[in-house]
Computed example of a mutant assay.
Amino acid sequence: MKYLYILVVATILFSSCKQKQEVPKEWELLNIVQLEGVNPIGIAEMDGNLWLSDGDHNRLVQIDSKGEIIKAIDSLDRPMHIATDGSSLFIPQYGRDNVAVYKNGTMEELFLKDSLDAPAGVGVFRGEKAIADFYNNRILYNNGKNWISFGEEGKKQGEFYYPTDVQITDSLIWVADAYNNRIQVFDKQGSFVKMMGDDQKMNAATGIYVSDNEVFITDFENDRVLIFDKDGNLKQTLKDEIEKPTDMIIMNNTLYIINYRNGKLSSYTLNPVVMES
């Protein structure tokens, strides 16, 4: 029994040491790809392929690893922050006041009983949908059955000043509250939960991406991407090869950031932090 006790204690101590020895990691610039003739606003991944909304040219494009266009969906009207459920692309058309759904070569309009005014972003998650309704300063959310609307123009908690992007996770709805320069987070009844980034002096928080552990926001006019933990603590600021960023996504452990101004795709990889001796 004595030896068993010693073995248990040693195992606990070993596990504790392993946890303490975890090396912190940060995102570092990996590669830059020039996107010829594309001014990207939104990004999504479907079937291992990257799709970009090219709002200036009223189209969506699918690109390869070199940034070359493989496929294009034309005749759109200012497509913004797009999303996918794995089989369909959801396309908010800022100029047409609707959300288009593209699947298997066909395009349909997402049916809504309510009217939109310049939708700027859409999020989808397990049958749920959310729309950032830009000029109406609100979010429309569907739980798979029913739609609700929350938010109005203002600067208080739960109010918006031109929301541009939205993402849904297991229990929360995350909003890029662009010109209030912050992120706001809500439950799925539309009740305010928390905000973050309001102390970072952002200038147009236009795009949002939420991973398992981190929250990414594009600080458009300041040419940077801010990375927070889920509690709102700033972890890292990315500025290398970033100019007027609009959106980002993680695919195959690589962070892809699209830059509207210079039409570039900047990719980052997660590397151990080099500790100074």
Rank of each mutant, 00 (worst) to 15 (best):
2 K>M: 05
9 V>D: 00
10 A>H: 09
11 T>Y: 10
13 L>F: 14
24 P>W: 02
29 L>R: 07
36 E>F: 03
37 G>P: 01
40 P>Y: 04
53 S>D: 01
61 V>P: 04
63 I>L: 07
68 E>D: 10
71 K>Y: 10
72 A>S: 11
75 S>R: 12
83 A>F: 12
86 G>E: 11
91 I>T: 04
91 I>G: 03
96 R>Y: 08
96 R>E: 10
97 D>R: 06
98 N>V: 08
99 V>E: 01
102 Y>R: 05
104 N>Q: 13
104 N>V: 02
104 N>F: 05
108 E>P: 08
109 E>N: 11
110 L>T: 02
111 F>L: 14
117 D>G: 11
118 A>C: 15
118 A>D: 10
123 G>H: 06
124 V>S: 01
133 D>V: 13
140 L>Y: 11
141 Y>D: 05
154 G>A: 08
155 K>V: 09
157 Q>V: 07
160 F>N: 14
164 T>L: 12
166 V>S: 02
176 A>I: 04
179 Y>L: 14
184 Q>P: 03
184 Q>G: 03
185 V>I: 12
186 F>Q: 02
188 K>E: 11
189 Q>E: 15
189 Q>K: 15
189 Q>M: 09
190 G>I: 01
192 F>D: 14
194 K>F: 10
201 K>A: 12
201 K>W: 01
203 N>C: 02
205 A>N: 00
216 F>K: 06
223 D>E: 14
226 L>H: 03
233 N>L: 11
235 K>Y: 04
235 K>F: 06
235 K>E: 05
236 Q>I: 04
242 I>T: 00
243 E>I: 09
249 I>W: 02
251 M>P: 12
253 N>M: 05
253 N>F: 11
255 L>N: 05
264 K>W: 08
267 S>D: 01
270 L>N: 07
274 V>S: 09
274 V>T: 15
